[in-house]
Structures are given as C-alpha cells and as structure tokens.
C-alpha cells in the first residue's frame, strides 16, 4: 500500500517535470520564432501625420505574404534611434536627411530610394503671402511645417544662410498641405513644404496659390531611403527585392502611396555620394 502510493507520487512528479519541460520548450519556440522576425523600422522626419496604426496594419498585412516580416513605425526620432541601436537583422526606412546624420554611427548602407512622379529628388521651399516683406530684410515669423523641429530648422539654416544663428519659430502641423493652408489662411507667416506639395495644391486651389510666393528654395535631396545595417545576415537580395517590387502589385502600390511615394529605385554612385557627403 505504502509502496503503491510512493510509486504513484513518483509517477506524478515525473509527469509534472515532463509537462514543465514541454511548456518551457513551447515558450522557447515562441520566443525564438519572434526573434526570427525581420523588422522594418520606419521614421520620417519630414511628416508629422499620426497614421502609425494604419501604416502598421497595412504593411504587416502586406509583408506577411512574403515571410516573417514586421513593420514598426515610430513617431519620434529619439525613440526610433534608441530602439534600432545595434540591431542588425532589420531594415530601415528613413528620410535622406536623417540617414545622412546617422549612417556612420549606425553603420548603414543605402539600398533604395523612394520615387514620386518618376523623380527620386525633391526640393523644399519656403512660402509666404504675396504681400509679405522680403526675407532678406525682415526676420522670418512663425513657420508652419510638417517636418520635425530639428529637420525644419536644419534645412532652413542651409536655405537662409543669413539666419544661420536665428531661432526659428515653428508650428508643427501634420502634413505639407496643412502647412501651405496655414500660411495661405494666416495661421502662420510662412510655410515650409515640398515643391511637389505646392504644385499639387496649385491644381486644386489655384486662387490660394496665386496669393503665395516662394521666398527661398532648398537643395535637392533624395526622398525616403531604404537602408540596411552592415551586419545584416539574412537574404539581402530577397529583402530588397520585396520592397523594390511593391509597385508591381495593386496591394504593394497602395502601401507605398501611404508613404507618399509611387515606387523605389536603386541609388547610383552620384546619389550615394550626395547622400553621404
């Protein structure tokens, strides 16, 4: 009787140990499967639109067709940089301005650049009401911009060399069209936006655009950059092709349009030298 109960207890202990081991193994599998995911980290210093939930849902749905990929958008530069530090098996989508600032520290290599209307370069402009005084004679007032404060002031300082030491006052708005409308309707003195956005607005509201004038123009810069860390060990070609081929399907095309692009293109030597100079 005593032997029987002893055996029973040993049997239960054995079963419990096996169950625990199995649970541990399952957990290990789940965790390692998670770590096997390749993340695509996205942050754009040029837009402030809060559409991260939609972006994540749409890109995750699209990428899941190709393998264990996950899209991770960020709303703040510091959080993005902290999160991606020392990450190797991942891909970054970021502005060319941001890339130029971090590529050395993060050991990044550019793979693709965004294309909009067949062009891979864009230009930022500074606009104001047609009656506004010349920028050379009057200090700039409140500037509406969809870019981050760091990005906007950095580009403005190169654009307006006279005001390199000036503390620009910036009103951050969600997107370029908001910046243009804000200056057009007097909520800001100036608008900092892309030439492309202004041209688009001209087609919709020509009257408002006629009331605005371009005060200054920035240098040409590449659109969004797809970059890989130097330590990337997964199939680089497969990954880059997956992104590059997005415009070939209606589903992929829809997703890149959410980023304000209509395609991707490889960078040539001249692009790369301009990007990293």
């Amino acid at each position: 009787m005593t032997d029987n109960s002893h055996q029973k207890r040993r049997f239960i202990a054995l079963i419990s140990t096996i169950a625990l081991l199995l649970i541990g193994l399952a957990l290990f599998c789940v965790i390692s499967a998670g770590s096997g995911r390749i993340k695509i980290y996205f942050y754009s210093s040029e837009t402030n639109i809060n559409n991260f939930k939609s972006l994540k849902m749409e890109f995750d749905r699209y990428l899941s067709k190709f393998g264990p990929y996950e899209f991770q958008p960020f709303s703040a530069r510091d959080v993005f940089e902290k999160q991606v530090k020392d990450k190797e098996n991942c891909l970054f989508i970021l502005s060319s301005w941001h890339y130029r600032h971090i590529h050395k520290e993060y050991s990044l290599t550019p793979a693709l650049t965004g294309v909009r209307n067949g062009k891979k370069y864009q230009r930022k402009i500074l606009l104001a009401d047609e009656k506004a005084p010349d920028i050379e004679t009057t200090k700039p007032g409140l500037i509406a911009s969809a870019g981050s404060l760091q990005y906007t002031t950095s580009v403005l300082k190169r654009m307006l060399k006279k005001y390199a030491e000036h503390a620009f006052r910036v009103l951050t708005v969600p997107k370029d069209i908001d910046a243009l409308l804000a200056a057009g309707h007097g909520m800001a003195k100036l608008a900092f936006a892309s030439r492309y956005a202004f041209d688009e607005l001209k087609g919709i509201n020509p009257r408002l655009c006629r009331k605005m004038k371009v005060l200054a123009e920035g240098e040409e810069t590449l659109l969004l950059i797809v970059a890989l860390p130097q330590g990337f060990t997964a199939n680089r070609k497969k990954m880059v092709d997956m992104i590059k081929n997005m415009p070939l399907t209606p589903d992929g095309k829809k997703r890149i349009r959410m980023l304000g692009l209509d395609g991707w293109q490889e960078l040539d030597a001249s692009d790369r030298s301009r990007l990293e100079s």
Binding site: I49, N51, S54, E58, E200, K254, R257, L259
Partner: peptide, 11 residues
C-alpha cells in the same frame, strides 16, 4: 487621388 493615401490618418 494618387497621393491621397499619404494624407489620411485612418482608413
């Protein structure tokens, strides 16, 4: 519009 999707917050 072609680029309309880039200005939408929620679909």
């Amino acid at each position: 519009g072609e680029m309309a999707l880039s200005v939408v917050n929620r679909f």
